[in-house]
Write a protein that binds this DNA or RNA. Structure first.
Lengths: 147, 147
DNA sequence: AATGAAATTGTATAAAT
DNA sequence: ATTTATACAATTTCATT
């Protein structure tokens, strides 16, 4: 197992605050900062750590709306959509899913007009369903290692 | 406007890699590291920056399944669910949404058995619909400031 | 795989513009 | 609001265990 107890603690620190110094993490988990540095680098190389993201407020960035949009792609239109969706700045997350619908996306939008023009871009790919986000109940909760 | 061109550049750096040093960001955007430090602190205080998260691979943490689960809450069961959902380690993100369904969640699970027991916990709150995630198409894309 | 030590680099604070 | 100077702290590299 590549994730031992020490790495679990390090990951807990990093998930809570990715900008903690190695020295501070070392203090919290009880090892030296070069040891923290090495363990982090190893977890990056192994793909355990995928990156360090800053959570920015969409609202403060000028996006008043968030929506969950699902897409039921037309025949032959899924593949082109999978390429196109990467170019949409509005799409923060996009997953391919099982079931009648093929795609679910988390989207940020300036206003209702922007939502309208965004949905218009989807009609050539399939039937979309839009659910406006009213509030964030749980937001990027840390992933806990399995017991 | 609190997000000027310099802050946009700083946010772009931080969204790409939250662990960049202030000195490195300063080099990239053309100001000194104390200036970067002050601007970041101000954006934290104003709520533009909500936090610094490390993206950890659910798979490497032992979760073989990801799912999108929507919930159509029973009468009087939405509020209790909004409290309960915060205690579920499986739920990475949870939004309240408009429409027939009240809740959409992003959930990580060890295996199909774990999915089954998780869904069982939802039946007292409402009718759930599960869509298994086949692949990540777009993953925590950076939020771009509005032109 | 972790530590301790040395060199480099980064951060925080204050003073000046 | 930013820079420069300075002191302190963190990081990196490497030798050692």
């Amino acid at each position: 197992m590549k994730i031992d107890e020490l790495n679990k603690k390090i990951l807990k620190c990093l998930q809570t605050n990715a900008r903690l110094s190695n020295a501070e993490i070392g203090r919290q988990v009880g090892i030296s900062s070069p040891a923290v540095s090495e363990r982090i680098k190893k977890m990056e190389d192994l793909g355990v750590i995928e990156g360090y993201k800053t959570a920015v407020s969409p609202f403060e960035m000028g996006y008043q709306l968030k929506a969950i949009i699902t897409l039921r792609a037309f025949m032959g239109k899924l593949k082109p959509f999978l390429e196109k969706v990467k170019t949409f700045d509005e799409v923060v997350n996009c997953y391919r899913i099982t079931g009648d619908e093929n795609i679910v996306m988390e989207v940020v939008l300036k206003n209702h007009k922007h939502l309208e023009t965004f949905i218009d871009q989807l009609i050539i790919y399939g039937e979309s369903k839009t659910q406006i986000v009213l509030s964030d109940v749980v937001k990027q909760k840390e992933i806990k290692p399995i017991k």
